[in-house]
Design a protein around this nucleic acid. Structure first.
Lengths: 213, 213
DNA sequence: CCTACCGATCGGTAGG
DNA sequence: CCTACCGATCGGTAGG
C-alpha cells in the first residue's frame, strides 16, 4: 500500500492553487510564469512541480474546482425548498457571495478557459450549462411565458451578466459590498421580469441547448 | 513637405488592426504571435512592422480605437435630443449594435487592458469612465433617487453587465440577434428600475468617481 | 531620398 | 528541494 501524502500536502496544494489563480487573474495565464508562481508561494520551481504536473494542470485545477463549487451552490440553495421568488433571490445572493470570495478564480474561469485542452474545456462548459439551466428554470417558474418564447436561457444570461460583470468594478473593501448589492440586483431583475413585454415564440416547438455561463 | 502615404496605406492598416483584434480575442494578447498576425494578414513580418511599431502598439491602437468609437456613440445618441426613456433605449441599442459589430475589439478591451502601459491604461480607463457616466446620468434622470442614494454608477454597471456579458454567449448568426435582444434588455432594466426599492443614502453628500466600463 | 516590402537572423527568455 | 541547464520559440531588426 502506498505511503500516504504528508500531512499538509493538500493544504499546501490549495495555497498554491490560490496563489496561481491570483497571478493568472492579474497577469493572464500565458504571461504568468511558473517561476513567478513558485516565488509567490515561497517555494522553488522544483517544489511547485511536485504539487502540479505542469502549468496546464494548474489551470485545469483552478477552473475545475471553481465550477464544481458553483454547482454545489446550486444544490445547496435547491435543498432549502424555497418558494420561486425567495429561491431566485437566494441564488443571486449565493453567487454574488461566491464571486466575492473567489474573484481570482472567477476571472481565470472567464478569461482563460480558452487555454484548456478540448476535453477539459468541454467539461467546464458542461458544468456551466448546468448552472445556467438552474437559473433559467428558476426564471421560467416565475414567468412561464419565458419558456414559451424560448427566452429563459437568454434572460438567464442577462442576469448572469449583471452578476458576473461585478468582478470588473465591484472591489472588496469598497463602500458597496456584495451583500448590499444582492437585494438590489434581485429587485431590479424581478421588477423587470414581471413587466417586460415578450416577443412571440420564434418557432413553435424548438428548445435549444443553452450557452455556457 | 513630406510625401503623403501611399493610397491604401490606411486601409491596409485598418485590415491589420482587425485581424490582430481577432487573434488577440481568440488566443489572448500574450499567446498570439506577431508571426501569426502577419500570416493572417497575408504579409511578411517585416511588412507588419512597417504598419505598427511593435506588438504593444497594436494593442494600444485596438483598445484606443474601440473606446473612441464608444465615446462617439454617446455623442451621436445625445445629439438626437430624445426624452429620458427613449434616450436610454437608444443607448442600449447603440451599444449592443456596436458590440455585435466589434466583438473582437470588445473582448480585447475587456481582457487585455492589463497589458497596456500605465499611461495608456489610464487613458482607456478615463474614456470608459466617461461612457459609464453618460449611462449613469441617463439612469439618474429616469430615477432621481438613484443619485440621492449614490447608486447611479453601480446601477449603470449592472446595466453594462447585461450588455457587455453578451459577448460571452450571444453569437452572430444565431436565432437571437443583438437587435432583437435590445428591446428586451431595455424592458427588463426599465421595468426593474422604476420598481426597485433603494436603500437609504450611506453618507449624506459624498459622490465618488465611477469605476471603468 | 522616399516608401514599401522580403529573406534571414539577432539577443533574450519561456516552460520544463 | 536547489542549481544548472536543455530544446523551442518568442518579439524585434539587420542588410539589401
Amino acid at each position: 500500500m502506498a505511503r500516504p501524502r504528508a500531512a499538509g500536502y493538500d493544504d499546501q496544494r490549495e495555497q498554491i492553487l490560490a496563489r496561481a489563480a491570483e497571478l493568472f487573474a492579474h497577469r493572464g495565464y500565458t504571461a504568468a510564469t511558473m517561476a513567478e508562481i513558485a516565488e509567490a508561494c515561497g517555494v522553488s520551481k522544483a517544489t511547485l512541480y511536485h504539487y502540479v504536473r505542469d502549468k496546464h494542470d494548474l489551470l485545469a485545477q483552478i477552473t475545475g474546482g471553481h465550477v464544481a463549487r458553483l454547482e454545489a451552490l446550486i444544490d445547496e440553495v435547491g435543498a432549502r425548498g424555497l418558494a420561486p421568488e425567495p429561491h431566485l433571490r437566494a441564488l443571486v445572493d449565493a453567487f454574488l457571495a461566491a464571486y466575492a470570495s473567489a474573484a481570482n478564480e472567477h476571472r481565470v474561469l472567464t478569461e482563460d478557459v480558452k487555454f484548456l485542452a478540448p476535453d477539459e474545456h468541454a467539461a467546464v462548459t458542461a458544468a456551466e450549462r448546468r448552472v445556467v439551466r438552474a437559473f433559467a428554470d428558476a426564471l421560467a417558474t416565475l414567468r412561464p411565458e419565458l419558456r414559451a418564447a424560448a427566452l429563459e436561457t437568454p434572460v438567464a444570461m442577462l442576469l448572469f451578466g449583471m452578476i458576473n460583470w461585478t468582478f470588473t468594478w465591484l472591489k472588496p473593501g469598497g463602500t458597496l459590498s456584495h451583500a448590499a448589492l444582492a437585494p438590489l440586483v434581485s429587485d431590479l431583475f424581478l421588477g423587470g421580469l414581471v413587466s417586460a413585454r415578450l416577443p412571440q415564440p420564434p418557432q413553435p416547438p424548438s428548445p435549444r441547448a443553452g450557452p455556457p455561463a
